[in-house]
């Protein structure tokens, strides 16, 4: 890694969380550089969702340390971390279905204290291509549009770090291609942590990949390095359909 001297945007040390006796995340170190797209992969049940919940604050840390731009945020609750610049988009679409699209995005924009709400909402919706649907009730949007709305809500927060949890799940092939382009256009303004099953998307987007298995980090590196890593192949790529 070239920029060792620069403080990483997010730095995690020894993150741990156990459910009962099961260590879902076991001493994970993770470091996200500013402006990169960092992918987190691993077989089902590897602890990806738990790890992301620890980063976003939806689960409390049982051990370890979390720093955002050098500042300790380990004890901050989820909403506090959002205000510091960590946005999270849900794996299962989570919007306000009975509110108009405008209000969904406005809630995000006003949370960071945007002065001009209509402008802030328009900016976020323009970016995902939903600008002409502002008045529609969010619940009446198609599934693909709801995923985009979810992303627009994340963007309207003007985050430093955007965590995308399985963003392409359930999307059609054409939608996935558009989504990939969209995510690529976010960097380097925003740092992206991408949790993704679709290896094509991961390989196309990621600057750096971390591989999780049984709650531990088993490899980290560029897409080429990960592709060549024997341990990863054994644990993951060989274990199940890589494209799935």
């Amino acid at each position: 890694m070239a920029a060792l001297s620069e403080t990483p945007l997010l730095e995690a040390r020894g993150l741990t969380h156990a459910f009962g006796g099961l260590r879902a995340v076991d001493g994970v170190d993770l470091s996200l550089k500013r402006g990169e797209i960092h992918a987190l992969i691993g077989p089902n049940g590897a602890g990806k969702t738990t790890l992301v919940s620890l980063l976003s604050g939806r689960l409390p840390l049982q051990g370890g340390l979390l720093r955002l731009e050098g500042e300790d945020i380990s004890a901050l609750p989820a909403e506090g971390r959002v205000r510091r610049g960590i946005a999270y988009t849900f794996q299962i679409t989570s919007i306000f279905p009975r509110l108009p699209v405008f209000d969904n995005v406005a809630l995000a924009a006003q949370s960071r204290g945007a002065r001009d709400l209509p402008a802030a909402v328009a900016e976020a919706l323009d970016r995902v291509g939903l600008a002409d649907l502002t008045a529609q009730e969010a619940g009446s949007l198609s599934y693909g549009h709801q995923r985009l709305l979810e992303l627009a809500m994340g963007l309207a927060l003007h985050p430093k770090l955007l965590i995308l949890d399985e963003p392409t799940q359930g999307l059609a092939a054409g939608e996935i291609a558009r989504f990939t382009e969209l995510v690529r256009s976010l960097v380097p303004g925003i740092t992206v942590l991408l949790i993704e099953h679709n290896m094509e998307v991961v390989m196309a987007l990621a600057d750096c990949i971390s591989v999780l298995n049984f709650g531990r980090l088993i490899a980290q590196g560029s897409p080429e390095q990960i592709r060549a890593d024997a341990g990863v192949q054994a644990a993951y790529l060989g274990g199940e359909d890589a494209a799935g």
Binding site: S56, R58, P77, A78, E79, V82, R83, A87, Y88, F90, S94, I95, F96, L107, A108, S111, R112, M153, L157
Partner: peptide
């Protein structure tokens, strides 16, 4: 969702 938009 509200919590993950920064509201307590």
């Amino acid at each position: 969702r509200s919590r993950m938009l920064g509201y307590n």
